[in-house]
């Protein structure tokens, strides 16, 4: 069983967050939603592991109940 990493793992979290919000600057709501969808798919592909992806979807749907 793979474990979904829920410990801090992002280097320079403030810089990452600024990049993320910056990518949405000037976009309409629909464009922002589409950007987020593309991002999720890119991240998912990078992770690859189906078990982890299943847990991440659960964690996002019901925070605190990922397992």
């Amino acid at each position: 069983m793979s474990t979904l990493n829920l410990k801090p793992n992002i280097e320079d979290p403030d810089g990452f967050y600024a990049d993320l919000i910056g990518a949405h600057e000037g976009l309409s709501d629909a464009e922002s939603a589409a950007l987020n969808a593309r991002l999720v798919l890119l991240f998912a592909n990078h992770i690859g592991d189906r078990d982890i992806l299943r847990k991440a979807i659960k964690a996002a749907s019901n925070p605190g109940k990922e397992t």
């Binding site: 990493n5 801090p8 979290p13 403030d14 990452f16 964690a59 925070p63 605190g64």
Partner: peptide
């Protein structure tokens, strides 16, 4: 997420 998961707290 920060309420449940430590990873989100640095954000």
């Amino acid at each position: 997420l920060a309420e449940h998961y430590e990873f989100a707290r640095p954000l």
